[in-house]
Design a protein around this nucleic acid. Structure first.
Length: 417
DNA sequence: TCTGGGGTCCTAGGACCC
DNA sequence: TCTGGGGTCCTAGGACCC
């Protein structure tokens, strides 16, 4: 199909977590719409999770930013309303939106819980020209689901995504290649996708302040200073991007990490958290049908110094015990004894379970481990995670599984992508 | 004063082999 | 005694996204 132009929509929920909280409150009889007052969704500071996850537009007027501490946010706006996150609600809202979008195209890509790419190419016969369809989608989401979205329309994913970030809320914007000089180039370079807080100052030192400056910069110079990332963002600044909608390559790793309400200062407690985290990692690995050939442990000290170590395995595994044993061994080698604020476990270098190679040395033990894990998974899936736990957690005050569906703070967040 | 969690990709250096 | 380059694998750390 040489020369054929794709049509891509990027649908982005406005202030997603906060909007979804507002809609749920209204549906349960609330008279106040928290989207109309300074309000945020944020974690619990007593558990050391106290950051802003989403903010209302009135909260934004107080310069409150996503990711900053609730403490700082309250200093800026003393009357700020704060709501805890409810990931189960967000999943339901996200699913409802996805179901509606599926009516408009078979080709969707869920980029995150609140962002979807939709390939509208060849759909004009069904729903009219792209702008008409985008408005219809936006209005239906508002009317039928109660929250608003921005929709960006263009010929590729990058431009559609940049377009959905224009004026908010509840708007459709186009950013076709011909509009790039007028609509994209005047923006500050840090507004460009993939230009973050490390890249922006490097570009500033080269005299590049707008996306237009970047588009006109010498790619050879960018490559020299920023390596392959320089070429990537130069292409983006020129509106060049050509990845297909959907078509994910599959998952590459499964991880679970947690900031702990207190500092961990002894090995035994650290090991319990490693086990708690590993239980969830391994179960998700098994549910997804993968085996891991790499285990990584990451630590964050009380002083916010982060470091990680990883180790290749001799054979791929999805066994809780095997991953846990490796994690403990890595931890004991790397931990310098300082108080720990956060601990993480990640399983990587994945292979599909069906292509598994049994270790030549101990196939019997592997099969036994798999039988145990499968039995535990079955009980947890059927009766709930608390029906079965390892004895070390009894009376420990530490949850037998951390993260995922069973953590009331972040249920299912990690399971959906 | 307080600072989350889930990911992916890239780079650089060292080990090891031919 | 003194002299290579590739190529691959592994590890640690950093940058970016939502």
């Amino acid at each position: 199909m040489a020369g054929e132009k794709k049509i891509v929509f990027h649908i982005d929920v406005n202030s997603a977590y906060l909007s979804w909280e507002a809609v749920d409150q209204l549906q349960h009889g609330a008279s106040l719409d928290i989207r109309t007052i300074p309000a945020v969704v944020g974690g619990n500071p007593e558990k050391r999770h106290g950051i802003v996850l989403a903010k209302s537009i009135p909260a934004k007027k107080y310069q409150i930013k996503t990711g900053e501490t609730l403490y700082a946010a309250r200093l800026k706006c003393p009357g700020l309303a704060i709501f805890p996150p409810r990931y189960d609600l967000y999943i339901r809202c996200s699913e409802a939106m996805l179901a509606l979008l599926r009516e408009y195209s078979p080709s969707l890509q869920r980029y995150s819980i609140d962002e979807v790419f939709l390939d509208y190419t060849n759909m004009e016969d069904h729903f009219g020209d792209p702008l008409k369809a985008a408005h219809q989608i936006k209005d239906r989401i508002h009317r039928e689901l109660g929250f608003t979205v921005n929709i960006g329309v263009s010929n590729n994913k990058l431009l559609a995504k940049m377009a959905s970030d224009f004026a908010k809320p509840d708007q459709v914007h186009t950013l076709f290649p011909a509009e790039v000089p007028e609509k994209l180039w005047p923006l500050p370079v840090e507004d460009l996708f993939m230009v973050g807080r490390a890249t922006a100052p490097k570009l500033h030192r080269l005299g590049i302040y707008t996306i237009g400056d970047l588009a006109r910069a010498d790619p050879a110079l960018l490559k020299k200073r920023l390596k392959s990332h320089g070429i990537l963002i130069w292409n983006y600044a020129n509106g060049k991007e050509d990845s297909p909608v959907g078509d994910f390559p599959g998952i590459k790793s499964v991880g679970n990490s947690s900031t702990i309400a207190f500092d961990v200062e002894d090995r035994k407690t650290a090991h319990m958290f490693l086990l708690s985290l590993t239980e969830m990692v391994a179960m998700r690995l098994r549910n997804a049908g993968y085996l891991a050939r790499l285990v990584a442990v990451s630590l964050k000290s009380k002083e916010f110094f982060s470091y990680s170590h990883q180790r290749k395995l001799y054979s791929a595994t999805d066994s809780t015990n095997q991953i846990y044993g490796t994690a403990v061994s890595i931890f004991d080698e790397m931990w310098k004894g300082e108080p720990l604020r956060a601990i993480g476990v990640r399983a990587g270098d994945l292979v599909e379970n069906s292509r598994q190679q049994l270790s030549l040395f101990d196939p019997g033990n592997l099969l036994k481990q798999q039988a145990i894990d499968a039995a535990v998974d079955k009980i947890r899936n059927k009766y709930g995670s608390n029906m079965i736990m390892r004895a070390v957690f009894l009376h420990s005050g530490i949850k037998p599984l951390t993260g995922g569906v069973w953590e009331e703070d972040y249920p299912m967040m990690s399971n959906i992508l």
